[in-house]
Structure formats: structure tokens, C-alpha cells
Design a protein around this nucleic acid. Structure first.
Lengths: 347, 347
DNA sequence: GGACGCATTGACAACGTGGTACAATGTGAG
DNA sequence: CTCACATTGTACCACGTTGTCAATGCGTCC
């Protein structure tokens, strides 16, 4: 600790300037001549000076840290986003703090506010990234905006609320996935929904329905099953679908994410149903799991890493200026990834 | 920001005591009567006071934050550890900062030291958790100990170096996994190694070899394949093993982790080899993937969540006292999880 | 040439907490 | 009654940075 504690005043003395001048150089403030700037920067290099984060944030009310809020880290989605965010974060010299929002503690908006206030006082983040399902929660966004904390929400389809957004076009992606199955000749296509509190569930289902209708195929309610975005609910949905009599069974399944698609795939294996010959399966996300299944899952790739990375970039760009990020909305490209779990309809 | 900025002096006025008394109560110092203590605590509650993290850490050189260092977040292992650590961390009112160590930047010990100094000066963590492969790197541990930062290393089998350790008994676990296969009647058993810079690779292989030898079976070098702890290397190993002529093939495979076991399983599927009838496969870790494969993987469960949780607990307990955590070593229980990928040897 | 504007630089206070030093009180024991 | 000791308060400094404001230098315009 001791040896390495170079302070700003040391840099100032070393460069033969005042404390304030060093501060100006480090913060890229104007009113310092170029020659002096260089001299200071060299002194910083020579001494290996690093500003003290605590002193800085005490004085300036900035923490140089971005919080990632999630319910759980144990999903591929959150994980990939986190990875992208962290990468960008570190390059910019910020810290990334991971915070888990305990659902029990945030039942009401009052508890939510109290919880956030604790968080904020103890070290107000320069920005916050919200992943689903929190990115859909209007109360959370409201509280954050009241506290004047810039927020980027990942994944939501609504445009309304405050803060920035990073998404794909869920609707178009669902349409394209469905058309993929239609083009392969499938007509009886099942859909496994995700969690109902996430609007991508609804948007994807709407895309699915509309694509079917456009192709002159009506949606069979028996082929629309509930799901929770996890493996188990996919497995349950698969078991259910395969328990139907042969003529009632679907020839293809569109699951709202890869974990559920994996569940359907395992259900098929258990039932001795060949994939893709007897049943085509398409997922959504392009999780790691999609590639490690057999057969590998056809899916819609969401740029999860980029979600995190872009969100972080937006926050860091914004940080410093005290403007709130209002309604900025980035829509990133998705891509259909055709692997082995989908194939032509076998009359 | 404004409204919520309650300071210590506000609490003092509200409770009708002096600033110093509040400070004493909050820091659990002696010399305050119980009644007064309660009064202060109530004032804290009423005002929703939260100490300013930056002021606190500026003054006391503690940050109330723990860093988790990893190379990548994209592995089930790191992820689960992170989850456990975060949970415990938040309960204790600490922050968890995730830091990715760029391998390019840490090639030499000099760069490593410079990198850490930046990190430390900008906000010295109260503790650091190292996951593999960093927990095996003696240079990292050395640098941390020079900087007087408490470290908990997760997973290493060596006892030597400074800092605390949280592990399972890798050797015993590998022996047990191998015995499981032996008891099922298998004699030609392959082993897929992990990364060579992680000592669990070596310890697990030693356990495997010793169990075989004890059973009077010698290790066939052709059945020991390299691996990188990832799906692809497992797939390659599986392809290789199944390309052997029938009488040279193993009847069982022990992969040093689940991702590689999943690769072997997919290789079997591709080759039309039935699991477990024609080939038994056992993994290691009990990753999420183990349960989502078909057939579900038999594996050795490592208590990953607990690794993180226990490591965090040790750090937080230690935090405040300035003693370093020396040689504390917690060995947590593992468990053989028998699922569907292993079965009796079919003559 | 003097007044003025503007860019540059510096001196000093302030952020909210923890620590030190000591005074002022209350309380019980010898 | 006195002394020892625990409790509580007062007062101030320190942590390392940024913000405020004044001082300086320099060129420009009347």
C-alpha cells in the first residue's frame, strides 16, 4: 500500500506545476497549454500515478462504476451480456459491479425504492444496465429515473419509458424463424412461450402467429404451450406435445429460447422421436447450449455480447455529462442460424 | 440525489446525540450504553441513513468491496462460483466487483504487478477471490500478498502458497468416479485430460490411474487424451476414441469435466454409438449441461455455489482485522451423481 | 497608454467519514 | 470524600480529490 500511494500532489511537484493543473489535465479540462499537458502526463507515467477512486467519488459524486442488475446470474443470456459489458467497461477504466435484485425484497415499489436508496447512497453508480425481466419493469425504471441515474435496458420491445434501450427486432426475428419452418414444409407448428412478464414472449408469439396467418395457416391453441424460459418447462412442453395422438402432433416446434428448445429435444429423444426427421425444433438466442446438443439446435442468434458491450458504451459516453439518456434506442441485427435440428417436413 | 443524502450529522441531531456517538455505534466500538445504541440505530432506520462508501473508504482505506478475478465469465464453473459469492456478498452489505484479467496484459510478472497496482490504487479491494486457472498461478498470489490483499483461491490442490483455499478433494473424487466405472464392470476406460496449467488436471488423472492400478488394470496410453475443458476438445477426443477398431475402443470414458463429457457424448451420437449401452461416460463438476444432455450425464458434483459463498464468507470475516488469511484451507464435500450416461459393461 | 477581455494558473475550501485528544459528566468502590 | 473508570461530548485534523474564485499574464481595442 504505502510504496505505491502516489498522490496528485506528488505528480504536481514532480512536474513543477500546481495541484489544480494536474487535476485539469487528468480530467481533460480546457485551459491548460499543450506543453504543460504533456509534461504532466509524463510525470504521471513516470510515477505510475493512479487517482484514488474514493477521493474522486467523494468529491465529485461520480463513482466510475456501472452496475449490472439481474435476478440471477445463472442464465446464458445474462451471462453473455455481462461478459460483453465487462469487457467494454474495463477498457474504459470503469469498474463493473454486479448486483442481484432479490425478488423477495422488491415486491412493492416502496421496498424497491428503499433498496435502491441504500444502494445509491452507499455509492451512486454512474449508470445501470437492466437485463430481462427487470428491463420490462416500469417501476424499476421509474425509481432509477427519479434518482437521476442513467439506465440502459436490454431486450424490451416497448418504446415508451425513460432510459436507453438495446434490443433486436424480436417481431421480425420470430417471423423469420417461423418462415424458416414454413419453407421447410411444416404446417402443424407448435410454439412454446416464455415467461409471461417478459414482453419478448408476447412479441415473439405475435410474430409467430402473424407469419402463420400470412401463410394461410391458422394457429392451433393446442399447439401453444406455456413455458418459463428454462430447460424443465421445455421438457414438460415436449412431453405434452409428444403425448398427443400421431395426427394431432406437430411436425415442428418453435421454442421462445434455446433452453426450452433443448428440453423439447430431450423429450423427443426420450420418446424415440427422430430430430429433425420426425420433429424439427428451432430455438432462440443461440446460447452455448445450442451447439452442444445433438443434433445442434437451429436458432435465432441474438448478439448478447454486443448487447452488453453497446449498453456499456452508451453509459460511459453519457457519463460525466449530466444529461439523462432519453429514448435512445439501438436495434442490433439478429441472424437465423441453421443447424441440424430443423429439416424438411417428411409427409 | 439531494433528498436522500442523509449524513451522519443528521442522524446525530435526530437522535439527540453527538456525531462521535453515532460513529461509535455504527462501527461497533465500545463505550456506548445499550439504550443509546438502540436510539441511534432507530434514528438510522427512520432516516434511512446509509454511510457514504466513498467517504468511508477514503478515510479508512477499506472499500467494502470484494473483487472476483477471472479470465472469462463464460464457463459454468466461474459462473456458479460467482453466483454463490455474490449472494453472500450482498447479504453482508459488500459490493462485488467482477474483474477480467486480460491474459495478454499479464504475460510477465512486471506487467501483472503494474496492472494490479492500477487496480489497487484506484480502489483497493478488501479481498480477492481467484478462480482457476488463476488460482494456480503462483505469481498472481505473490503479487497480491505483496500488496497485502487477502486472497482466497478456489480449486487448487497445492497447499504451499499464501492465502486461503477452498476446494474439494480432487484426488478422492477422481478415485471414486473411476471406481464407479470399475464396479460397473468396465476395464478399458479412457481419460480425457483438462488444461495442463491447472493442477486439478494432474490430480484427477493421478486419482484415475491409482484407482485403476489398485484394481489391477493398467493404464493404456492410447486411452489417455488431451483436452482443454471445453466442448470442442471433448468432441475431438470422442471422435478419436470411436475411430479406434472395435477391440481397441474403450467401454467407458472419464472426462475431467462435464463440457468435455458432453463432447464425447455428442461424438457417440454422431457415430451411432449407444450411451450407456455401448459406451459409458462420466463427467466432472455437475454443470447445468449435465442435466440437459440426453442421456443425462453421470458426474461428480462440485459444490460450486458453496465455493463462492464460503470464499466470500472467509474474506468478509477477515476484513477489518488486518491479519492476512494464511493457509486456511476448507475442503468441501463432493458427491457422485449417478444419472443415465453410465451403465454396466455389456460383454 | 490604459482599460478590457480572455486564457492560463494557482491558493484554498469542501466533500463525509474515522481517528485522536481531551474535557465533562456520571457512578461505584475503597 | 476521593479516586478510578466508564460514558458521552467537543473540537479538530486527515484522507485525496474537485470546485470556486482570485491572481496573473498577454494581447487587443479604443
Amino acid at each position: 500500500m504505502n510504496r505505491s500511494m502516489t498522490k496528485m500532489i506528488d505528480v504536481a511537484r514532480h512536474a513543477g506545476v500546481s495541484l489544480k493543473t494536474v487535476s485539469r489535465v487528468l480530467n481533460n479540462e480546457p485551459h491548460v497549454q499543450l506543453a504543460l499537458r504533456e509534461k504532466v502526463k509524463e510525470a504521471v507515467r513516470e510515477l505510475g500515478y493512479v487517482p484514488s477512486a474514493s477521493a474522486r467519488s467523494l468529491r465529485s459524486n461520480r463513482t466510475y462504476s456501472i452496475h449490472l442488475f439481474s435476478h440471477s446470474l445463472r442464465s446464458n443470456f445474462v451471462n453473455s451480456v455481462q461478459f460483453g459489458a465487462l469487457h467494454t467497461c474495463q477498457v474504459a477504466g470503469y469498474r463493473m459491479v454486479v448486483t442481484m435484485l432479490d425478488q423477495a425484497k422488491t415486491v412493492g415499489i416502496k421496498e424497491l425504492r428503499a433498496w435502491f436508496e441504500t444502494l445509491v447512497n452507499s455509492g451512486k453508480p454512474d449508470g445501470v444496465i437492466l437485463v430481462p425481466p427487470m428491463s420490462n419493469d416500469p417501476e424499476i425504471s421509474k425509481v432509477m429515473s427519479e434518482m437521476n441515474i442513467p439506465v440502459i435496458r436490454i431486450g424490451p420491445n416497448d418504446i415508451e419509458d425513460g432510459g436507453g434501450t438495446v434490443t433486436i427486432d424480436d417481431h421480425a426475428a420470430a417471423v423469420e424463424a417461423t418462415q424458416h419452418l414454413l419453407e421447410l414444409g411444416h404446417r402443424r407448428i407448435a410454439f412454446v412461450r416464455g415467461k409471461e412478464d417478459q414482453d419478448s414472449t408476447h412479441v415473439r408469439f405475435r410474430g409467430f402467429s402473424e407469419a402463420l396467418e400470412e401463410a394461410g395457416v391458422s394457429v392451433d391453441p393446442d399447439l401453444v404451450l406455456p413455458g418459463l424460459f428454462d430447460f424443465e418447462s421445455g421438457l414438460a412442453a415436449g412431453d405434452r406435445l409428444l403425448s398427443y395422438p400421431k395426427d394431432k402432433r406437430p411436425s415442428a416446434v418453435f421454442a421462445a429460447n434455446d433452453h426450452m428448445a433443448a428440453g423439447v429435444l430431450v423429450a423427443a429423444h426420450k420418446a424415440g422421436v427422430q430430430v429433425p426427421d420426425d420433429l424439427s425444433i428451432i430455438g432462440f438466442d443461440d446460447s452455448e447450449i445450442a451447439e452442444t446438443m445433438w443434433p445442434a439446435l437451429t436458432t435465432v442468434r441474438q448478439p448478447l455480447y454486443e448487447f452488453g458491450s453497446v449498453a456499456m458504451e452508451m453509459l460511459i459516453q453519457n457519463s460525466g455529462k449530466n444529461t439523462r439518456i432519453e429514448g435512445e434506442r439501438k436495434v442490433l441485427p439478429y441472424a437465423l442460424v441453421w443447424r441440424q435440428s430443423t429439416g424438411p417436413f417428411q409427409g
